Amino acid sequence: MKLVYVFDAYCGWSHGFTATLREVTSRHPDLPVEVVSGGLFTGSRRVPIREFGYVQGANAKIAELTGAAFGQAYEDVIADGSFVMDSEAAARGVAAVRQVAPDRAAELAGALQHAFYVDGLSLSEAATYRTVAQAAGLDADAVVAAFEAPDAQTEADEDFRRAARLGVTGFPTLLAVDGDSVTPLAHGHATADQVDERLAAH
């Protein structure tokens, strides 16, 4: 059995789920975790952030429910309003860190969300992946090269298809996958204890 974490790096609720995921993975070190990018802001949804009027209200609720932090640099990005969240670029970045450090994919997914939601860094920029890689002790050149390689786009597209095949319609979603059996453990928000209860019942 393995855990499959379907998230989007530009999803505030996924950012809020980071602490739960960290706790779940620390409680179950024997369970491999596959990280899949869901593709929240693609196609016609790639528009300036000001067009999503609900962002700040949603973030306040996320912070209240999960304790997740939103940094001043990120608040400045929201206030400016021109930033475009591009989930395709973010999925290429997730694919890049996953390629360089596959066994740390869940941890690095959280680090990418921290880069955006706390440090206000764009997940479309190679420099962001260099910063995250260096902080994580990874080969930064390898991560940047993987992000910029054509294969990254192929992997991003495959992630979006995999999320759809798993029937995931919202992020974050945590699943227990055992062969053909797929059991939902969390959708949107859950505590580590709630995930454990569902895992035990699985």
Rank of each mutant, 00 (worst) to 15 (best):
A63G: 14
A63Y: 14
A63P: 13
T66P: 11
T66N: 10
T66H: 09
T66F: 08
G67I: 11
A68T: 08
A69Y: 05
A69K: 14
F70A: 06
F70Y: 15
Q72Y: 00
V77Q: 07
F83R: 02
M85K: 14
D86W: 00
S87D: 02
S87V: 06
A89C: 10
A91P: 03
R92Y: 06
G93E: 02
V94P: 00
V94T: 13
A96V: 00
A96L: 01
A96C: 00
A96Y: 04
V97K: 04
V100Q: 01
P102H: 10
D103Y: 06
D103V: 09
D103Q: 15
R104L: 03
A106T: 12
A106S: 14
E107W: 03
A115T: 08
F116I: 02
F116H: 15
F116N: 00
V118I: 14
V118Q: 11
V118P: 09
S122Y: 00
S122L: 01
S124Y: 01
S124H: 08
A126V: 01
A127Q: 09
T128S: 00
Y129V: 02
R130F: 04
A136H: 04
A136K: 05
A136R: 04
D139I: 07
D141C: 09
A142H: 05
V144P: 07
A145P: 06
A145Y: 08
A145V: 04
A146Y: 13
A149D: 12
P150T: 12
D151N: 06
Q153T: 13
E155K: 10
A156I: 12
A156H: 09
A156E: 09
D157K: 07
E158N: 13
F160T: 07
F160Q: 04
F160H: 08
A163D: 03
R165E: 15
R165H: 08
L166Q: 06
L166Y: 13
G167P: 08
V168K: 10
T169E: 09
T169D: 05
G170M: 02
G170R: 07
G170I: 02
G170F: 01
G170V: 05
T173N: 07
T173S: 15
T173W: 08
L174Y: 12
L174H: 12
L175I: 11
L175R: 10
L175P: 10
L175T: 10
A176K: 11
G179S: 09
D180S: 15
T183Y: 07
T183K: 05
T183M: 03
P184C: 09
L185Q: 10
L185G: 11
L185M: 11
A186M: 12
H187R: 13
